[in-house]
Design a protein around this nucleic acid. Sequence first.
DNA 1: TATTGTTATACTCTATAACTATA
DNA 2: TATAGTTATAGAGTATAACAATA
Lengths: 176, 176
Amino acid sequence: MAEPSTARSLKRTSWPRKAAASVGDIDTSYLESLTGYNARRAALTIISVFLDRMAQYELRPVDFSVLSLIAHNPGITSRQLCGALDMLPPNLVGMLRELEGRGVIEKREHPTDRRAQGLHLSAAGKKLYAKAQRTATELEVDALHDLSAEERETLHGLLRRVYRPQRKSGEPDQPG
Amino acid sequence: MAEPSTARSLKRTSWPRKAAASVGDIDTSYLESLTGYNARRAALTIISVFLDRMAQYELRPVDFSVLSLIAHNPGITSRQLCGALDMLPPNLVGMLRELEGRGVIEKREHPTDRRAQGLHLSAAGKKLYAKAQRTATELEVDALHDLSAEERETLHGLLRRVYRPQRKSGEPDQPG
DNA sequence: TATTGTTATACTCTATAACTATA
DNA sequence: TATAGTTATAGAGTATAACAATA
């Protein structure tokens, strides 16, 4: 009710983890042999840190992803964002409206398609995103302090091969 | 309304991905340098396959995880499940009630703590879980056909090091 | 006084159907 | 006829507060 209008709550997802000791008594070895389980646990762990560090910018992971794609692809359309982030169009509408309301992004007319609209960062949006990207890059190193740079690269490569299907043989696609 | 009573819908999460070509035009390189982004995308990809293959047993990933921990830790309590799976107690109540209603699990009195209850698979639950675990193991290989067994092991090890903090030095914990 | 399991509830996330204006 | 953006809405997932029974 009486909250800052544009702001969202962005509350912490974490919950007191002192019960972690009890996990030691439980055999989780089979679940830990499954990639989906491990990938989801790892993602949630990093996202928790992400939420903490990005709260200062009032950006959730999905907001950051959207801003990042707009920053690196000025004029990208809503539909392209959906394709790249695997989101559904209706779920993007409110987000974009909010970011526009905050003065972070701008919608301009598309050069060739009058149905579509090109998305751009505002001047303020560019400043915000630059800071947020620095924070994200730092966060990456801090949250993964146990992994060397080489191990992180290995991890990313393997994960991409999971979610991005390999080309069969002579299939043309974007060159590495 | 006129649906099988205990059953849940378990609908597909996927949505027609033919627009995937558009991703090729978009620069996603920065996002792909972030572990959280890659891990989440990979997890969602595998979970999508999981949902398809496990629909025959009417088990969602979380149901399978719960059954797996009960199967490998007979007499485990609700609270221990929450600790191991990073779930909140209120969100487990309905799930356990449903699984009990389906005759898959049983609640028995805890040997030492009368507040708690030990969870066990029923005979039918053991059969169901045995089939489901076989399916999960097969799925693992099929969904990750691009990765060798060694690469999968490497991936799992790295992911575990992300979500499970390493012991400092002389910290006693479960031996590898 | 703290913990287990529970109820009630609110908020967020994800999905579908259907509309409009353009292509 | 198909697509971009939108509205409205339903359903699943995730969070908090508070309670009774037991430790």
